[in-house]
Simulated assay, not measured.
Amino acid sequence: MAKNVLGGDLVDCSRNPMTGWYRDGCCNTGAGDTGVHTVCAVMTADFLAYSASVGNDLSTPAPQYGFPGLKPGDQWCLCAPRWQEAFEAGSAPQVVLDATHVQTLEWCRLEDLQSHAVTG
Rank of each mutant, 00 (worst) to 15 (best):
N28P: 00
D74Y: 04
A62T: 14
Y65P: 00
D46L: 08
D46S: 15
G32H: 12
L10P: 02
A45I: 06
L6W: 00
L48Y: 03
L58E: 05
V96M: 08
T19V: 15
W21R: 15
S51W: 06
P61C: 10
V11H: 02
T34K: 11
G20T: 12
A117R: 15
M43V: 13
L78Y: 11
V118L: 03
Q64V: 14
M18C: 13
V96H: 06
V42C: 13
W107L: 12
L110A: 04
L6H: 01
P93F: 12
A2D: 13
A86T: 11
R23G: 01
A92W: 07
G66T: 00
D98M: 03
V5F: 01
A52I: 01
M18S: 08
Q75M: 14
A117G: 07
N4C: 02
P68M: 06
Q75A: 15
F87R: 11
S91A: 09
Q84G: 09
P63R: 10
D33A: 13
W76I: 10
A52W: 01
G30Q: 08
D33F: 10
T19C: 08
V118Y: 00
Q114F: 03
E85P: 03
A80F: 07
A49K: 14
C40N: 13
C77Q: 09
V36K: 14
D9M: 01
M43A: 15
M1Y: 10
D98W: 02
L105A: 05
A62F: 06
E85Y: 07
E85G: 12
V118C: 01
H116C: 11
E85K: 14
Q84I: 03
C77F: 14
H101D: 15
D98K: 03
T119E: 08
T104M: 12
F87A: 15
N56A: 11
M1H: 12
A52L: 03
L105N: 02
A31M: 12
G20V: 11
G8Y: 00
A80D: 05
N56Q: 14
W76S: 05
L105C: 02
S91I: 01
A2W: 10
W21N: 13
P68A: 07
N4E: 00
E111R: 03
D74G: 06
C108M: 04
C13L: 09
G30Y: 07
G55I: 02
D33M: 13
W83H: 05
D74H: 11
A2H: 11
C26M: 09
P61D: 09
V118I: 08
D46C: 09
D74W: 04
Q75V: 10
T60W: 01
H101V: 12
G69T: 06
T19I: 10
G73V: 09
G8A: 00
T100S: 07
V36P: 02
N28E: 13
A117M: 13
T19H: 03
L105D: 00
V42D: 09
S91H: 08
G30S: 14
E111P: 01
H101K: 10
S59I: 02
W83Y: 10
V5C: 02
W83Q: 05
V42I: 15
G32A: 12
L10M: 07
G35K: 04
A62W: 05
D57I: 01
C79E: 15
P68F: 04
W83N: 01
